[in-house]
Design a protein around this nucleic acid. Sequence first.
DNA 1: ATAGGTGCAAAGGATTTGCATGGAA
DNA 2: TTCCATGCAAATCCTTTGCACCTAT
Lengths: 148, 148
Amino acid sequence: MAHELEQKALASYLEDHNLKHTKQREAILSIFLDIKGHITGEELYQRVREQHSNIGYTTVYRTMKLLCDAGLASERHFDDGITRYEIEHEHHDHLVCLRCGKIIEFECQKIESAQDEIVKRHDFQLLRHRHELYGHCSECQGKERGGS
Amino acid sequence: MAHELEQKALASYLEDHNLKHTKQREAILSIFLDIKGHITGEELYQRVREQHSNIGYTTVYRTMKLLCDAGLASERHFDDGITRYEIEHEHHDHLVCLRCGKIIEFECQKIESAQDEIVKRHDFQLLRHRHELYGHCSECQGKERGGS
DNA sequence: ATAGGTGCAAAGGATTTGCATGGAA
DNA sequence: TTCCATGCAAATCCTTTGCACCTAT
């Protein structure tokens, strides 16, 4: 079985929470893990459909929510308002190309510590943040408009 | 007339663009300017209604879009997906309390310059960014759940 | 007179929910 | 057998649009 580690993680999460292990959940996890970048619910649904024409939209959404709870995926919201999912991994932020839609990850210790200062200054308890840089990627800078 | 400067700015924007100066636009601008913080379309609509029960939802939305184009307002999108408007002013970012909904503005030169570095490193052309810190404000840190 | 503006209701798009059926445990 | 999961359709939420009427210019 591909993605054995993650499938096991899912299985044990399901057991621990008295939830059921279904073909749909296994299939959606597997297809989701095959994708490297950030995928929308719609896109994921399409991919799932290619292999499992009987799986519904609803199940994809519900399963992604489940995978987020299980710590295998995380939700991202960029400016277009469409929810995207990515494989859960260490903290990072994003550069988003407004022409081709490319999403690049970055992390920056300088910013993190500057944030900590701000949070302290306002006596805030920081739970999470969101930091996105929007612009044109190197490939799109010459173009009038961008495709993908 | 209150907010004379802004009303004039609106008037000249309207003239320049062959648009019409209406009571609704004047009223919405005036009420919007009375609000200090960040307001949702819904809240603004309610406030407008208190004084002008004949103004519709649609007009509030359309007018806010107009005010944004005119540079008098700007739209903000936080994690709850609801559009908020604020008076247009120099660049800043936000701290958002997840309990009481309080929104605090901040600006940080350190972060700005760190961003510039990242953007250069990826050969990106930066157009705008979004940086939001979510957590609990000082007043809400003791509470189980928050009102307001 | 003539564009643009308004307000209602209806549409829109992404996501969620109700409900009867299906399938793990 | 029991309860959770599924899939469809309908509902939801915020926001936008169509359209007939209205009103600045």
